[in-house]
Deep mutational scan, measured.
Amino acid sequence: TVKFKYKGEEKQVDISKIKKVWRVGKMISFTYDEGGGKTGRGAVSEKDAPKELLQ
């Protein structure tokens, strides 16, 4: 599970739902399947990112 803040809201998403991951400076950005055909997005700092996300 990845915990992150998006627009001031605390969120979390299961690693299995993450589609795409990329690095922006010291942040790790990602998109994930929100269900219902929607794609969500989020970002975590490199130090807070789970190891599975960095692979």
Rank of each mutant, 00 (worst) to 15 (best):
T1R: 07
T1Q: 13
T1M: 15
T1K: 12
T1N: 08
T1W: 12
V2C: 03
V2G: 01
V2H: 01
V2T: 02
V2D: 00
V2W: 03
V2R: 01
K3Q: 09
K3Y: 14
K3H: 09
K3I: 13
K3R: 13
K3C: 09
K3S: 11
F4R: 01
F4D: 01
F4E: 00
F4I: 05
F4M: 03
F4Y: 06
F4G: 01
F4Q: 01
F4P: 01
K5G: 05
K5N: 13
K5T: 14
K5F: 15
K5M: 15
K5H: 12
Y6N: 06
Y6C: 06
Y6T: 07
Y6R: 06
Y6M: 06
Y6L: 07
K7C: 11
K7D: 08
K7L: 09
G8F: 04
G8M: 04
G8N: 09
G8E: 04
E9K: 14
E9I: 15
E9N: 10
E9F: 10
E9V: 13
E9L: 08
E9T: 10
E10Y: 14
E10S: 11
E10M: 13
E10D: 14
E10T: 11
E10C: 09
K11P: 01
K11W: 05
K11M: 10
K11V: 11
K11I: 14
K11R: 14
K11F: 09
K11Y: 11
K11T: 06
Q12E: 15
Q12G: 04
Q12L: 13
Q12S: 13
Q12H: 12
Q12I: 15
Q12V: 15
Q12W: 09
Q12D: 07
V13N: 00
V13G: 00
V13I: 14
V13W: 02
V13H: 01
V13L: 06
D14K: 08
D14G: 07
D14N: 11
D14F: 12
D14V: 07
D14C: 07
I15H: 03
I15D: 01
I15R: 03
I15C: 03
S16P: 04
S16L: 09
S16A: 13
S16D: 10
S16C: 07
S16I: 13
S16Y: 08
S16W: 10
S16Q: 11
K17T: 10
K17D: 11
K17I: 06
K17F: 09
K17Q: 14
K17H: 11
I18C: 02
I18A: 02
I18L: 07
I18S: 00
I18M: 05
I18V: 09
K19S: 06
K19I: 15
K19N: 11
K19W: 10
K19D: 08
K19R: 12
K19C: 09
K20V: 10
K20A: 10
K20T: 11
K20Y: 12
K20H: 11
K20D: 09
K20F: 09
V21H: 04
V21N: 01
V21E: 00
V21W: 11
V21P: 01
V21C: 05
V21T: 06
V21I: 11
V21M: 06
W22N: 03
W22G: 02
W22C: 04
W22R: 05
R23K: 10
R23E: 02
R23S: 05
R23Y: 07
R23W: 11
R23M: 07
R23P: 03
V24R: 10
V24M: 09
V24D: 12
V24A: 11
V24F: 09
V24W: 12
V24C: 10
G25S: 04
G25C: 04
G25F: 03
G25Y: 04
G25I: 02
K26R: 10
K26V: 12
K26Q: 13
K26G: 12
K26L: 10
K26E: 14
K26T: 15
K26N: 15
K26C: 07
M27Y: 14
M27F: 12
M27H: 06
M27Q: 07
M27K: 07
M27W: 14
M27A: 05
M27P: 00
M27N: 08
I28A: 01
I28V: 08
I28M: 03
I28H: 01
I28C: 02
I28L: 11
I28E: 00
I28S: 00
S29V: 13
S29H: 15
S29E: 15
S29Y: 15
S29G: 11
S29A: 15
F30E: 00
F30H: 00
F30L: 01
F30N: 00
T31H: 05
T31C: 08
T31E: 09
T31W: 09
T31V: 10
T31K: 05
Y32I: 02
Y32P: 00
Y32W: 10
Y32D: 00
Y32G: 00
Y32S: 00
Y32T: 01
D33R: 03
D33K: 04
D33S: 06
D33E: 08
D33W: 08
E34F: 09
E34T: 10
E34W: 06
E34G: 07
E34M: 14
E34N: 07
E34R: 10
E34K: 12
G35S: 05
G35N: 04
G35P: 09
G35D: 09
G36T: 07
G36M: 11
G36C: 06
G36S: 11
G37T: 05
G37K: 05
G37H: 04
G37L: 04
G37F: 04
G37D: 06
G37I: 03
K38P: 03
K38T: 08
K38E: 10
K38N: 10
K38S: 08
K38A: 09
K38H: 10
K38Y: 08
T39A: 06
T39S: 08
T39M: 15
T39N: 05
T39L: 15
T39D: 07
T39C: 08
G40C: 05
G40L: 10
G40T: 05
G40P: 02
G40W: 05
G40S: 08
G40K: 07
R41P: 01
R41D: 03
R41S: 07
R41T: 10
R41M: 13
R41W: 14
R41Q: 10
R41K: 10
R41G: 03
G42P: 00
G42C: 02
G42M: 03
G42I: 03
G42V: 03
G42D: 01
A43M: 15
A43T: 15
A43I: 14
A43K: 13
A43V: 13
A43L: 14
A43Q: 15
V44E: 00
V44H: 01
S45C: 09
S45H: 15
S45M: 10
S45R: 15
S45D: 15
S45I: 09
E46D: 09
E46F: 13
E46N: 07
E46G: 06
E46I: 15
E46A: 13
E46K: 09
E46Y: 14
K47W: 10
K47I: 12
K47M: 15
K47F: 11
K47Q: 14
K47A: 13
K47D: 13
D48E: 12
D48R: 09
D48C: 09
D48F: 11
D48W: 11
A49M: 05
A49P: 02
A49W: 09
A49T: 03
A49V: 05
A49G: 02
A49L: 04
P50C: 05
P50N: 04
P50H: 04
P50A: 04
K51C: 07
K51L: 15
K51M: 13
K51A: 13
K51N: 11
E52I: 11
E52Q: 13
E52G: 09
L53Q: 01
L53S: 01
L53K: 01
L53P: 00
L54Y: 06
L54D: 02
L54Q: 07
L54E: 03
L54H: 05
L54A: 07
L54K: 08
L54C: 05
Q55R: 12
Q55D: 14
Q55T: 12
Q55A: 14
Q55C: 10
Q55W: 11
